[in-house]
């Protein structure tokens, strides 16, 4: 259980590191609220034209918008996760410090990112979501069980999100500067996670594809659990499947990276 306590400490540290920057958090809350407002009015207009688009009624669509705003920084869909720091450490060679420690690189950064995500969920997610729920008609479940099921899906979403971003970050071992890869990943993630429009509303083959991709584990999957559109267990299975695949891929790449690639700097 020794390593459990270590990674718990890393998670706690990740949480507190982000909690240090209160002004940034306040600014983030404001931004997410404004973004949410803009998107809500766009969605309201869209659902006026196309009622039941993607199987959602208007209240569900509004709920989906505020969930998206709550998850934006939690799942680092627009960047801002630990991947930026990790890439910088690879580029500068500070990664050497992480590598000689008696800890696993991937587990360490997963723990740190979970701490970060938990803080962002509470610090930046709850307020815009509560604002949205108070000001607009939303569709929220009345029973505690659905909320619990939703929170489990959120945690799994965090793991999947990390799995993708860890792979992106490790590309810096080969690319030296991973900024391009990170930006491409953010753009792809923003679109494929359903931040612009629920994946349920994507038509035809495109819809089939994006709904099968790992990004649909992130916003769409927990949203559908909360809105009662999907069962908890099949959702978990889908998310956990991607989490395992991504973490295993990350592990392989990590092994290759640390074995073959030069650690930068003297």
């Amino acid at each position: 259980m020794g390593s459990g306590r270590l990674y718990a400490a890393v998670t706690a540290g990740g949480f507190r590191r982000y909690a240090t920057y209160r002004a940034a958090t306040a600014a983030g809350v404001f931004t997410n609220t404004v973004f949410g407002l803009i998107l809500v009015y766009v969605y309201l207009a869209l659902w006026d034209e196309r009622p039941h688009l993607g199987g959602y009624d208007q209240a569900q669509a509004v709920t989906y918008v505020w969930l998206g705003q709550a998850f934006l920084s939690t799942l680092a869909l627009g960047g801002g996760g630990v991947e930026g720091e990790l890439m910088e450490r690879i580029r500068s060679g500070d990664i050497a410090v992480d590598l000689y420690r008696p800890a696993d690189l991937q587990a360490w950064w997963l723990a740190a990112d979970m701490g970060r995500a938990l803080f962002q969920l509470l610090g930046r997610g709850v307020v815009p979501f509560a604002f949205g729920a108070l000001v607009f008609p939303v569709a929220l479940p009345g029973d505690v069980l659905t909320w619990v099921a939703f929170l489990v899906a959120v945690v799994l979403a965090m793991v999947v999100s990390f799995g993708i971003r860890f792979l992106v970050a490790l590309s810096a071992f080969w690319l030296m500067d991973g900024t391009g890869a990170a930006q491409a990943a953010w753009f792809l993630g923003y679109f494929c996670s359903g931040m612009l429009l629920p994946l349920n509303a994507f038509p035809g083959a495109l819809g089939e594809v994006v709904r099968a991709l790992p990004w649909s584990s992130m916003l769409q999957a927990p949203a559908d659990v909360l809105l009662g559109e999907a069962g908890a267990l099949p959702t978990y299975a889908f998310q956990a499947g991607w989490a395992v695949v991504l973490l295993a891929a990350g592990r392989l790449v990590q092994t290759a990276a640390t074995r073959r690639v030069v650690v930068q700097g003297g």
């Binding site: 400490a9 540290g13 240090t20």
Partner: peptide, 22 residues
């Protein structure tokens, strides 16, 4: 030229982490 310490947190937090890590 590198640090093992947690940049944003008080020094003692890094030491608590060492306590667990080792």
């Amino acid at each position: 030229q590198r640090t093992t310490l947690w940049w944003d947190l008080p020094l003692i937090d890094s030491y608590r982490l060492m306590h667990r890590m080792y």
